[in-house]
């Protein structure tokens, strides 16, 4: 057990160091190396945060979905801890995505917010998972809270395909994807210097996300251990 924990700590430290290096590189590429956009000017640099943060949030809610399904199937506490941890961090990244989008929208669209389909569905995603966190903290019976949370986590994840497809299904102010397009490869649509900045920032966000997730997961595990020790008096 001790050996596993030490191994986990070492792994976390390596991911943390890699995340720090890639964050610094991402800041260099996003703020200095990448050229300004021909139409959006310098404000386009916000996209080097906006796209990686929403993709990280999608990944996080996918982990909530997987953890919730596994928990409902096998009833193992570890899966619930994973889903709960991923939901907390996913809410943070979704909230930041909405803020970044709003700051980018003001100089580009002329408004901080508009009730566009993609923006509204992203706000709904944020509210669903804020609700998830509230539900988990309000239900006193933990096993019931875990089951309710798992059901809400699965339902909440179903909003993500809607967000992705919203720009195709409805007439929206939000532009269609530049990277995840079915008809074009990313480098056919985005200048290589911008694609490098975006990729470096994406790697930085993913590494930092996994660092935070492993730390939050460890917190959940330790809380469970503390509860068990309190219940059985360390025997």
């Amino acid at each position: 057990m001790e050996k596993t924990m030490r191994k986990g700590d070492r792994g976390r430290r390596i991911i943390g160091s890699l995340a720090l290096c890639s964050i610094l590189l991402g800041l260099y590429f996003g703020l200095i190396a990448a050229p300004p956009d021909a139409y959006q000017g310098e404000a386009q640099r916000i996209m080097y945060l906006h796209i990686p943060s929403i993709l990280t949030a999608y990944l996080s809610f996918f982990i909530v979905f997987i953890g919730s399904c596994l928990f409902l199937w096998k009833r193992e506490k570890r899966d619930d801890i994973l889903a709960y941890s991923a939901a907390e961090i996913g809410v943070l990244f979704t909230g930041l995505t909405i803020i970044e989008g709003s700051i980018w929208g003001k100089p580009t669209w002329g408004v901080w917010w508009t009730w566009d389909a993609r923006l509204t569905l992203t706000a709904i995603l944020f509210l669903i998972f804020v609700g998830y966190l509230m539900l988990r903290s309000l239900i006193e019976d933990e096993s019931r809270g875990a089951v309710c949370g798992a059901v809400l986590g699965i339902i909440g994840f179903l909003d993500i395909p809607l967000i992705h497809m919203s720009v195709y299904w409805w007439r929206t102010l939000h532009q269609s994807p530049s990277i995840l397009r079915p008809d074009k490869l990313p480098w056919e649509n985005v200048h290589p210097s911008m694609l490098i900045a975006l990729s470096v920032n994406f790697v930085a966000f993913i590494l930092f996300y996994f660092y935070l997730l492993s730390l939050r997961f460890r917190l959940g595990e330790m809380r469970e251990e503390a509860k068990a020790l309190k219940l059985y008096g360390g025997s």
């Binding site: 300004p36 310098e42 945060l49 906006h50 943070l92 803020i99 970044e100 980018w104």
Partner: peptide, 15 residues
Amino acid sequence: SWEYVFLAYGIVWFA
């Protein structure tokens, strides 16, 4: 434009 950029980067990394 740069002020919006710094505002976004500042909020994200601070949070």
